[in-house]
Nucleic acid binder design. Structure first.
Length: 501
RNA sequence: GGCCCCAUGGUCAAGUGGACUAAGACACCGGUCUUUCAAGCCGGUAACGCGGGUUCGAAUCCCGCUGGGGUCACCA
């Protein structure tokens, strides 16, 4: 059996989009499942629109997602080069073949003229289509055009009768009436190939067996199939995967929030979650599984389980999945993922010591269950790294303004002081606190809430004793002392004034 | 507008003529647990776009309509 070869062929005009990422993912999954080869090819024939930065950006996004390729611009391969801008000779050679066997002809119409022709056709209520006026130009006229400085484009004479059938692995057979096919340009007047041509030539030259791409290319396919036939190439299999739409059913764009993989990365999403979510968008394992590893998805993936209809992208489910991963991945993995965020915030040094990593691990363990993204994780953990926080106003009102709170906090502080440094654990500190609560005959919250506010400045967060044990004895005592001072100077007098009773 | 694709709750999605009184997940709403907030657990609201066929029987097959999307470049 022939080795499966698929390709992901982005145009380096911007960063990797979520839609492109899913197309890449499906290609990757198919290749890996079939024991095939995954090729990365850059479709950079429009030299004016290329952004070199996009090339590295796209590659880094793919790598970050865990989608590795076997052949590509950076690593070469037996069918290279893998940038179309370096393959112009091949395209010219193939175009020449078409010209020689009469399937192609030179067109001297300028873009302006063509636009006018289209406009006129539209006015007459006709489908705009090239009228082949350059098809039979005599030598003299051609020479005259050339002398006038007009560089021609090369067109392919498409069949005007019959039908072309696209056999699609996801949609079945889709047929197009050949009369709707226009004489497409395969070589621009600047000598470069157009997309439809370069794509066909390369897919054939690179022995691509399955063309898996977005649905927007379905209408291009009949033209491409004709090119395959005219060039004498074998047809690959086609599979057009449904589009990803924005919540308002329109095409996904920047105004719909984050759409680039890179943005998700900086917004604190894990590649595990993104890949998982993308797989679920348009594909299903057929059972109730939701959270799956790349390996698991890979072993289950088939093209015929891909749905036919477009899917609306929903960031809330992605967020939920991200939270699931944050909460279930091995701790070191989450620590590794959040580290850059912590370093950027200045909470952890650039070259962290083992002790720093250890401390960060304990912090992550304490807060990971109540956050959805790495950004949230970073923000939920600030007070573990700095003590210059302010006390939440709502908390001050609820917990720092109660009569006797200073005394209660002082008792708690004493109790913690009584716990030996090397036994400053969740269990021991809780035991000490419970004793205070019992001795004072107060509800647990009367001590626990003000302590939380003192230690974190917040009213919500991890279990208090997790905070206490993580912060450590010295820090806890200092923070409670500071809170007591603060209450004395800011709350006591103010509270009296605000509350007449 | 021509051509093409698609159509199950707000969203993802299972379903391939009878097990459908239509699964599961997100979101939402309740409850539970609890030192807070989450998480977890339990429960709830909510869907086969419409109209014709075919069939003993249709979410499932056919036709029409409607709706959505894609595409009609010397962009990819």
């Amino acid at each position: 059996m022939l080795t499966v070869r698929v390709r992901f062929a982005p145009s380096p005009t911007g960063s990797l989009h979520i839609g492109g990422a899913r197309t890449a993912l499906f290609n990757w999954l198919f290749a890996r499942r079939q024991g095939g080869v995954f090729v990365l090819r850059l479709e950079d024939t429009d030299t004016g629109r290329n952004i070199e930065e996009a090339v590295t950006q796209i590659q880094s996004s793919l790598r970050w997602l865990g989608l590795d390729w076997d052949e590509g611009p950076d690593r070469g391969g037996p069918y290279g080069p893998y940038r179309q801008s370096e393959r112009f000779e091949l395209y010219r050679k193939e175009a020449q073949r078409l010209l020689e066997n009469g399937h192609a002809y030179w067109c001297y119409c300028t873009p302006e003229e063509l636009a006018r022709q289209r406009e006129e056709a539209r006015k007459r209520g006709e489908v705009p289509r090239y009228d082949r006026r350059c098809c039979e130009l005599d030598e003299a006229t051609r020479r005259a055009k050339e002398v006038a400085g007009i560089r021609p484009a090369l067109r392919v004479r498409m069949p005007r009768t019959g039908t072309t059938v696209v056999r699609d692995l996801i949609r079945g057979e889709v047929s197009f009436d050949n009369s709707t096919l226009d004489d497409i340009i395969i070589q621009k007047s600047n000598g470069g190939p157009t997309y439809n041509f370069a794509c066909v030539v390369d897919d054939a030259a690179m022995n691509i067996t399955h063309v898996i791409r977005a649905e927007e290319h379905l209408s291009n396919t009949p033209k491409q199939i004709v090119l395959y036939q005219l060039l004498g190439y074998d047809l690959p299999e086609f599979a057009h995967v449904p589009m990803i739409l924005a919540p308002d059913r329109s095409k996904l764009s920047k105004r719909h929030g984050a759409t680039a993989v890179e943005e998700f990365r900086t917004d604190g999403f894990l590649p595990e979650a993104i890949v998982n979510y993308l797989a679920l968008l348009g594909w299903s394992p057929g059972d109730e599984r939701e959270q799956m590893t790349l390996e698991e998805i890979q072993s289950l993936f088939t093209l015929d389980a891909v749905s036919k209809h477009a899917a609306i992208y929903d960031v809330r489910k992605l967020t939920w999945l991200n939270a699931q991963y944050l909460n279930s991945l091995p701790l070191p993995r989450v620590v590794e993922a959040v580290l850059p965020f912590m370093q950027e915030a200045g909470y952890v040094s650039r070259d962290p010591s083992a002790a720093e990593v250890d401390y960060l691990s304990r912090v992550v363990e304490a807060v990971r269950s109540r956050i959805h993204t790495l950004v949230e994780l970073r923000d939920a953990a600030t007070y573990f790294f700095r003590s210059d926080y302010e006390y939440e106003e709502k908390g001050v009102r609820k917990h720092f303004s109660k009569p006797g709170v200073i005394d209660i906090l002082a008792r708690g502080c004493e109790a913690l002081a009584g716990v030996a440094e090397d036994r400053f654990t969740v269990e021991e500190t809780e035991k000490a606190y419970r004793q205070v609560i019992e001795r004072l005959g107060i509800p647990g919250g009367a001590l626990i809430h003000p302590t939380r506010l003192a230690l974190s400045g917040r009213t919500v967060g991890p279990g208090l004793f997790d905070i206490i044990a993580t912060l450590g004895k010295e820090e806890c005592l200092a923070r409670i002392d500071r809170a007591i001072d603060w209450i004395e100077s800011f709350v006591l007098s103010g509270a009296k004034m605000n509350k007449p009773f």
